[in-house]
Amino acid sequence: MEIFNSLLPELIRIVVCAVCGAVIVFGNALVMGYAERKLAGRIMLRPGPMEVGFHGLYQLVVDGLKLMGKQLVIPVNADKPLYMLAPLLAFAPVFVPLLVLPFSEKIQGFDLDIGMLVILAFASINVLAILIGGWSSNNKYSLFGAIRSVAQNVAYEIPMLISLLAIVFMTNTFSLKEIAAAQSPVWFVVIQPLAFLIYIVAMVAETNRAPFDLPEAESELTAGFHTEYSGMSFSLFVLGEYANMFIVCSVATVFFLGGSSGIPLPFFEYTGIVWFLMKVYLLMFFLVWIRWTYPRTRFDQLMNFCWKYLIPFSLVNLLITVVMVKLV
């Protein structure tokens, strides 16, 4: 009984973290899937899903059931174990960053002093998954998509990291909770507007979304790296993508938009999480908005933009930040 008592809080913590992670990943995919289709419809002057439920509210549930019922087609010449492994590898790592995100001052899985590194490290596994999926499909389109994805992700990881480092230099910590707490008078988006801009651009590229969705450019590569995937193995890629969107938007919120800070709402004790989610979904709305508004860039433009503009500007920004931190 004594062992049980000492075990219990930790066990509850683990179970709660796991359940919340799953709820966030799947709930977010449902909300964003619906919002994306509806917003895309509105932007293109059409109603979007309307048939299933009130204004198509149950569309995503029905779609999910359909995808679960579909056959998993494996191409004859595919590398079977790797082909099955890739969607899992794209989906599984998204749970780890959710553990260290501070949803409010009180709601956080674990406060690590290397929180930012945990997020970046596990986000980088996504590239490996795309690469394995594209290669093992044994399809030219998939391979092209995978190669593009790697070139793009490896390049855009650098300005992303450097723009976040400017914030780390100002706060002297990698812990997400402390970074969020450090911007109590002014948000860092005011002090570091350039870093914020660079991060936003790199964020769009890292999640492989339009206008930087070259890995799955449907006009030239049918569906890019997931051309051969069907049913649940395809939807795991999509779930992973939406979860990654949530994570990068949360990081932007924590680093630049003051985390969970906001005007305290009188009727609700845990106000922080409301503000946090509002900021995150505002950024997600922005992602959807530009996806359906801007045309896709060409690949050389994409790479040039990163190496010739984003990286030098982020380095200059970092240098200025260092000097200012030393002076002030």
Partner: peptide, 23 residues
């Protein structure tokens, strides 16, 4: 710290570059 750096640099970057070279 070293754990995360190992994943970030070796699994996330070095291996991917090698795989790209192989492909």
């Amino acid at each position: 710290f070293l754990t995360m750096m190992q994943i970030l640099i070796y699994v996330g970057a070095v291996c991917i570059i090698i795989v790209l070279g192989v492909m």
